[in-house]
């Protein structure tokens, strides 16, 4: 063994440089695409946020934090930020608790597992724009089935998507509906990964009820899954755009304006690219903060190593 190592040492070195050439050759397309399509545009977006660049304008100027100070005074932006936070704050617990409860129900027996998993997963693979249209019909104030049902029991249903009181709740409900199946599948995978022997041990150790076994085994063992689901749901829901664009365009009167839609309006409708980039940076900062929270703070508490 050691003889072979000594003999092959020069060969190895030659092999190593050959390996490096191969590696770079294999990686070259990816590296170029990465630079041109991801790294440079991202850096450009960051720089853009400090300019007053507008598409089609002959020149632009560096304005430092000008865009950000404007953001601070922009009531529309403040509304978008508030709405996004509200949306995340409703969709995250709603879709996580719902998914966990359904996952436990599905896992509690053997019948119908595949069927129910497929049913709840359906929204994940459905075209969001099309399903948003279906929701628009369902929630329509006069012809929508939901209000028709409410009328049957004598309640005058609100204009779900066009009243500023209900619009964010409606969007959040659709958000929960969209995210539930995805989280459910992750929870189901987490549940099947729990060793059966731990439940047996909990029973022999005297855990008297299903709730005690959940507390002693299921919940702690699901910790990493739950953390992952939590972060991914928050990040997914910070990105809310499709339903807003299709259903409300941010209205009525900015009552359902959200970050990405505001950024879209500023950048691609008004062509104020600099200002839009500043909103993008705020969005990026939120996403990064969520990821940081996952790796730095929460991760330590759920991995038992």
């Amino acid at each position: 063994m050691s003889d072979a190592a000594i003999l092959s040492a020069p060969a190895r070195r030659r092999g190593a440089s050959g390996e490096a050439i191969t590696a770079w050759a294999l990686g070259l397309p990816a590296v170029l695409a990465y630079l041109v399509l991801l790294l440079l545009p991202t850096l450009a977006a960051i720089l853009l946020a400090f300019t007053d660049y507008e598409l089609g304008a002959p020149a632009f100027a560096w304005i430092g934090l000008g865009n950000f100070t404007e953001l601070l005074g922009d009531r529309g932006f403040a509304q978008a930020l508030r709405n996004t936070i509200f949306y995340v704050a409703v969709v995250t617990p709603g879709s996580i608790l719902g998914a966990l409860a359904i996952a436990l129900l599905i896992e509690a027996g053997t019948r119908g597992r595949t069927l129910f998993r497929a049913v709840f997963f359906l929204p994940v693979v459905s075209l969001t724009v099309a399903m948003a249209s279906a929701w628009q019909y369902l929630l329509h104030p006069s012809i929508g089935p939901l209000n028709a049902v409410l009328r049957q029991v004598g309640i005058a249903g609100p204009a779900w998507l066009s009243s500023s009181d209900t619009v964010m709740w409606s969007l959040a409900a659709i958000g929960i509906w969209e995210n539930l199946g995805f989280n459910l599948v992750l929870f189901l995978a987490g549940l099947t990964a729990i060793p059966r022997e731990l439940y047996a041990a909990a029973e022999v150790d005297g855990a008297p009820s299903a709730w005690e076994r959940f507390r002693l085994v299921t919940w702690p063992m699901l910790g990493p899954t739950t953390l992952f689901v939590l972060t991914i749901t928050m990040i997914r829901s910070v990105r809310v755009f499709d339903t807003v664009k299709v259903l409300t365009q941010g209205g009525p009167n900015k009552a359902s304006e959200v970050l990405l839609h505001a950024m879209y309006l500023e950048g691609f409708t008004y062509f104020r690219l600099g200002y839009s980039a500043a909103i993008t940076l705020v969005f990026l900062a939120i996403v990064l903060a969520l990821m940081w929270l996952q790796t730095r703070v929460l991760d330590k508490r759920v991995h038992y190593g």
Partner: peptide, 11 residues
């Protein structure tokens, strides 16, 4: 770490 919306403007 970077969502696809970030490079969208310069692209």
């Amino acid at each position: 770490l970077v969502p696809p919306h970030v490079p969208a403007l310069p692209l």
